[in-house]
Design a protein around this nucleic acid. Structure first.
Lengths: 352, 352
DNA sequence: CTTGCTTTTGACACCGGTGTCTTTTAGACG
DNA sequence: CGTCTAAAAGACACCGGTGTCAAAAGCAAG
């Protein structure tokens, strides 16, 4: 009448129990667990049966110790956008689902001057096989060097190539921003405003580049008073909106470097009685939940964040993930973002 | 010229290295690490110095093995609201910051019929000390029983007491919804609509109860056509808005069971040219980022999710967290939500 | 039936810590 | 100064796996 399936006294069965039941040595059981090739079919089946009977699950701590390597990968982020983090995380979990790996999630405090030290302590204690760095901390070169020094593999996720392909997953934001802007131009917009992301962020710089390039292609330039600084926060969008929409000749369209700021600009437009998209077209970036939760719904750029999670995990630990996870030699680490057109974009009113 | 601080050949120093350097046995080092009381001050200092010199960090896997217990806690969630998950997670991390514990985050797929099995596999493999269950899966009794069976401590987070205090952290949503509704009534609203959360969700039921109770207190009742079903999604808000705002006598205020649905209702109002808050007051629930990213900003109920994370972690593993983490005997596991009033609420126009 | 080789399997040490029990040391006391 | 006791430190097994290398088994050829 033992309450538990196997083992004794409510404890988990160990490799020794399995070995005893199957009538082999524990090393043989170990070979079965690790799919060693030097084992006869007959023995393998016997051991597998014993494993099933007992409901044996190898102790990951013991394996980690014996292998001198544990089966953890870490996700480091300081991302203000929760949805992004969770989507990426989901992609990583998709990728490691059938492996022995587990995921450790670690938010880091970018502001803190102890950040590097904190991360070092974390990595030294947990000793993950590898770490994935989400933007914006992925842009921190010291962090990458720290991983290198500690012998922890790493992958940096970014809006542009931050490192060599082995250490990098990114999306083609610049191009897609260009596409979005070309769409505005095609609709007849000529006065197009720009709200920038925070200084020092690579992603912000990329988006600005994409914006300016598309303008230049069309022979347009960005007027100084059509440019507003920002920091990816809603309040910055409010400020930018106040600035750009108070002009004597306000822009007929504004590209905002993320959705939150676009939402801020949109609030200002509503407050001023400016019709969106009739009098003002708006485009954001991220395709965050906000983009579809505001009215009118926001045209934006969606980056394939979940897929990037899968890719990052594979780049990091393909050798742990079974054959399907191999990334073909020389394949680009750049995944495709897409421009998503919604209600907030239309041809400009009046003179087109 | 060794590249690394301590150890040999780039490897981490072990307890043996420390013991050798300090001239004591490894057991003595172990005693220092674990703050054993049977150790002389002199020895402790010597060992501590050796630890510092070598930069020794105990191997968590080895400790886990020797202790027959690892130092992981798990966070299980299937939460559609990323911000909530991340905030809660942050609270947990605050709580375990100075401990040896690490956090494993595990999204689960509620829809899947293999859900329980997946979780079982996860728990058996990782063997965390405890698990925290976020709503809505925290409402699943089978899951709680599974934890119990596996000897994994657990804490269920919910909008109401789901279990005894030892296994529960919640907030007083019902009361605060009542407070919000009383505010509407005080402003003069009499026709108040309600958009419900998904059937089968405890949180949805609590919010509805709070709503109806407050109405009843004031001698009002919820007219059938002022009630709309929902599922916490934006699209349900759209549908609810279409329904409620097409009435001959539409409500002058609507309580929505979460912010996303409120955003949906607000979109419909904008589309119909109904002024918010002039002609329609709106209240949501969650205080999600959306609440401040829409225009006008949304009055809502904020639940202390980060603090709940701290509390959940303490409830789960106070004995691992140092003296500050003790929860006084008999202290209620109910934390306080608050009503946050923003722009979306005002006295009704015209007849008040 | 040996021999010689390859394939399978096992014995035993080891990964880096902790538990138990024993031995040593230090201090109190007669 | 010897004795007794409590505190401190150490020896050694052990947690549950894997690596190494030697031994056993299987098989073809002599």
């Amino acid at each position: 009448m033992a309450a538990r399936t196997g083992g004794q006294g409510g404890k988990q069965p160990t490799i020794n129990d399995v070995a005893a039941l199957a009538g082999v040595s524990k090393k043989t059981v170990s070979r079965v667990i690790n799919r060693s090739e030097f084992i006869s079919e007959k023995t393998r089946l016997a051991v597998q049966k014993a494993i099933e009977t007992l409901g044996f699950v190898p102790n990951p701590q013991a394996r980690a110790l014996a292998f001198r390597r544990n089966f953890l990968i870490a996700l480091l982020h300081d991302n203000p956008n929760a949805q992004t983090v969770l989507n990426f995380q989901q992609g990583v979990l998709d990728a490691i689902k059938d492996s022995d790996l587990a995921l450790l999630v670690r938010p880091v405090d970018r502001g803190s001057d102890k950040m590097l030290e904190d991360v070092r302590t974390f990595l030294e204690k947990q000793r993950p096989i590898g770490a994935m760095l989400l933007p914006p901390i992925s842009e921190n070169d010291e962090l990458a060097r720290l991983c290198e020094d500690l012998g922890v593999r790493y992958v940096r996720v970014g809006s542009a190539l931050l490192d060599d392909a082995k250490h990098c997953v990114s999306s083609n934001d610049r191009e897609v921003v260009g596409e979005a802007v070309r769409r505005l131009i095609a609709l007849g917009h000529r006065r197009i405003g720009f709200v920038r992301g925070p200084v020092g962020f690579r992603s912000a710089a990329e988006r600005e580049k994409g914006f300016r390039e598309a303008l230049a292609e069309a022979g347009l330039t960005l007027a100084d008073d059509h440019y507003a600084p920002g920091n990816y926060r809603y309040t910055a969008g409010i400020e930018a909106g106040e600035k750009l929409l108070s002009l004597a000749e306000p822009p007929t369209a504004i590209f905002c470097s993320n959705d939150e700021m676009a939402a801020g600009v949109m609030s200002v437009a509503h407050g001023k009685g400016i019709a969106v998209p009739g009098e003002l077209s708006l485009i954001g970036f991220d395709d965050s939940p906000t983009a579809t939760h505001i009215w009118p719904t926001l045209s934006t750029v969606r980056w394939p964040i979940r897929e990037m999670g899968v890719r990052a995990a594979r780049t990091l630990v393909a050798d742990f993930l079974g054959s399907g996870a191999r990334i073909p030699e020389g394949e680009s680490p750049v995944l495709a973002s897409t421009f998503v057109e919604r209600q907030s974009v239309a041809a400009p009113d009046g003179k087109g």
